[in-house]
Design a protein around this nucleic acid. Structure first.
Length: 470
RNA sequence: GGGCCCUUCGUCUAUCGGUUAGGACAUCAGAUUUUCAAUCUGGGAAGAGGGGUUCGACUCCCCUAGGGCCUGCCA
């Protein structure tokens, strides 16, 4: 298999047309992993040659997405459109070598020829390929590549293996539009060459283009890079990933409360594997990663597994960081927050983080401690408060009021001792105590909840409920 | 229509000619229990179909079926 004998340079080359697809994120990850693994360089090129669709905002989305994922490039981004002059120069070379020609077909003529070609089961052919320019030289034209009519071109792909194409199936693609703007297939070749890209690692959807690009490399006498085409990421149902699958842009994953390190781990496992390893660090991924081990088949996004991986990293995450992220998510969602919300989160998060699959869920699990007094008790909670239980809870309030050590272990012991003096099991009043403390929202174990809430808040909530009119 | 790619449990994958086809997520059952969750134990679950090659195929070849990509003066 062909592997160029030069420094490893990879690149992620998204086009700024709105959002950053999760597939683009994975392509970036693989390029990053491979570059790091080989001690090479990982670059970013913004493919903005389509002036109609490219926007500055979309460029920012890409930059933000990569930054969030922790996959920032090793150098400043290259803007493809800014290199139009180099692209035109390459076309001049091709023209002078007779490897490209001016095509004066009108759009209507092209459409008609395309239809004919399709009907005849062949590739589009321009009558200008071997014809002199018309007398009226100011007629609009595009420059097309003069693709060989015979022979074959093989893409020695690092993940797919050798893939061969008959040249007769490859058409004379447009290199320069009638307004003089370069097209993608020309620009990638020139830019990858000028950026000294050694490994072109990109989506499967470019495998067919690779053959045509190789022809351009050869015509320009450029050294070929190695190619690696990654299978696509589909939605859970196997169809192309789209909006209805929940999320497809990396920004959405961030908003849903997934951690970037979890995304890196999950995405690395989508289409690549290292034995039975499922959860691993960046350092391990870098040490293990090789494009040769990339899976050939497309993969489906599995929300359950993303959730599981994310939960793993939430458990590992620093509580201060989680509190900040949760607070941010809570603010974004709107709703009232107490002034000391962050402190309450800090106290609660350690108790509930094990059950949180996302930051959003972490916020839900902390809800009980964030609510302000007096709590609104839901019906289920209210139903627990019969006369006997109220009486017992007021006795408990006294005991707790005298509790000197307000830490979960001590509280747990206090609760057990109280149950014993009452001659009942914890089950007899535990649910009611919880209801009173949380209002009915899910809460951690009683001692933990009391500890997180603190003495004043706990006793206050207990008192609120007991003094309620029945 | 033409070209190209792909096909192991529901999902992600391991196995790369000889395994009781392994793991993870999900799922089911049980344990624990002061809600939800977490945790622990156990179970079920796969080589698309058909031909070859071979002493022996999930692994190699061919065909079929299904899915995907390209076929743009998009990338």
């Amino acid at each position: 298999m062909f592997a160029p004998n030069r420094p490893v340079v990879t690149r992620i080359a998204p086009s700024p047309t709105g959002s950053m697809h999760i597939g683009t994120a994975r392509t970036a990850l693989f390029n990053w992993l491979y570059a790091r693994h080989r001690g090479g360089t990982y670059l970013l090129r913004i493919e903005d040659t389509d002036r109609e669709r490219s926007t500055q905002g979309a460029v920012q989305v890409i930059l933000d997405g990569l930054a969030w994922l922790g996959l920032e490039p090793d150098g400043p981004p290259v803007f493809q459109f800014a290199r139009a002059e180099q692209h035109r120069e390459a076309v001049r070379v091709l023209l002078s070598k007779g490897r490209a020609y001016r095509c004066y077909m009108t759009v209507q003529e092209v459409a008609a020829e395309r239809e004919r070609a399709r009907a005849e089961g062949r590739v589009l052919a321009s009558p200008w390929r071997d014809r002199e320019a018309p007398s009226r030289t100011n007629a609009p034209f595009v420059v097309r590549f003069k693709s060989p009519l015979s022979g074959e071109t093989v893409v020695d792909d690092l993940v797919k293996g050798p893939v061969s194409f008959r040249n007769k199936d490859l058409d004379d693609l447009v290199l320069l539009r009638s307004d003089g703007a370069p097209t993608y297939n020309l620009a990638v070749v020139v830019d990858d060459h000028d950026m000294a890209v050694s490994h072109v690692i990109r989506g499967d959807d470019h495998l067919n283009n690779a053959a045509r690009q190789i022809l351009i490399y050869q015509a320009l006498e450029y050294e070929l890079p190695a190619f690696a085409h990654l299978p696509m990421i589909h939605g859970p149902d196997g169809a192309k990933l789209s909006k209805r699958h929940g999320a497809q842009a990396v920004g959405e994953f961030a908003e849903l409360g997934y951690l970037p390190e979890a995304m890196r781990n999950y995405l690395a496992r989508l289409g690549w594997g290292h034995g039975d390893d499922e959860l691993f660090s960046d350092a391990q991924a870098i040490a293990w990663f090789d494009v040769a081990d990339v899976v050939r088949a497309p993969a489906r996004l599995d929300w359950n597994k993303i959730a599981h991986v994310n939960n793993h990293y939430i458990r590992l995450a620093d509580d201060r960081r989680l509190a900040a992220l949760t607070l941010e998510a809570l603010k974004r969602a709107g709703g009232d927050l107490p002034p000391d919300a962050e402190a309450r989160l800090m106290a609660t998060i350690p108790l509930v983080k094990e059950g949180a699959k996302t930051i959003l869920e972490l916020g839900e699990l902390c809800r009980f401690s964030l609510n302000s007094r007096p709590l609104v008790l839901d019906d289920k909670a209210l139903a627990l408060l019969d006369d006997d239980t109220r009486a017992r809870l007021s006795r408990l309030a006294l005991v707790l009021g005298a509790q000197s050590d307000w830490t979960p272990p001590a509280l747990s012991a206090g609760l057990r001792a109280f149950a014993e003096t009452e001659g009942v099991g914890l089950g007899k009043f535990g649910a009611a105590l919880r209801a009173v403390l949380s209002g009915g929202a899910p809460a951690p174990d009683l001692a933990g909840a009391l500890g997180a809430l603190g003495r004043d808040e706990s006793l206050g909530r207990l008192q609120d409920a007991l003094s309620r009119l029945r």
